[in-house]
Design a binder for these strands. Structure first.
Lengths: 115, 115
DNA sequence: TTCATACCGGTAGGGAGGCTAGGTATAACA
DNA sequence: TGTTATACCTAGCCTCCCTACCGGTATGAA
């Protein structure tokens, strides 16, 4: 995932969190890919800027694993788009990943404080 | 970095934080590789279990980038070991990475709360 | 009408990082 | 003697994310 312009440190970063963030956004209700990237950027106050070359492969990955389901539908503007929604397995996966993230960030914080 | 036994979710995880954690541990004073992995495991209460196949390549990477300096010395037990210490650039890098981590985890938290 | 810009989807190829699995060697201990 | 812990290392793989492209449609400006 790309970083905002201000952050120089190499556009590269937290491999492994993208799936969780996408699942979380989709959990709020059916949404299409392009809108997901906008939503992530918006909520994170432009910190995350998800390139399409990361977005679409991630969506396909999540669908292939049975965590997302896709369906072509019309958007508000009358155009076609692929709407994703969480499967039951996807919801479980999201819960697991959020729990995992919590433990992980706690452990990192512990080291940054203690070491 | 490997996860504790209890955590099933695929031993794979936060690519990109390992360097920061190592730098932080080394920042506390000269220490050799094997001890670094023990320290990380200890402080994180066994959450992180750093495999040697991750540890040593990471140390070489950090040395190559000029963030760590190595020197062979004797341990308490009279054996030889490669002790690492932070360079000036390494200290700057650590600060930058900690700042980055803070912003990033805030952004993730924001999405997990808001989305 | 034509051009630019958002919107909306996609792929190929590569780089980077962490892991598994293997290796070497020494010291302590049963 | 064999096992365990210490201490270092590397090859090769896998996954993930990125850059850089490709396609198309709708809207509004020039």
């Amino acid at each position: 995932m790309a970083l905002e312009k201000g952050a120089q440190e190499k556009a590269e970063f937290l491999k492994g969190t993208l799936d969780m963030l996408i699942l979380k956004v989709v959990a709020a209700g059916p949404i299409h890919g392009y809108a997901i990237s906008q939503r992530i950027q918006q909520i994170s106050k432009d910190f995350f800027q998800l390139p399409q070359g990361s977005l679409y492969p991630a969506l396909h990955r999540l669908e292939e694993r049975g965590w997302l389901e896709a369906e072509w539908r019309d958007t508000d503007t009358g155009r076609e788009a692929k709407f994703y929604k969480l499967t039951r397995a996807g919801r479980k996966q999201l819960e697991a990943e959020m729990l995992h993230w919590e433990k992980l960030s706690d452990a990192v914080a512990l080291i940054l404080r203690t070491a």
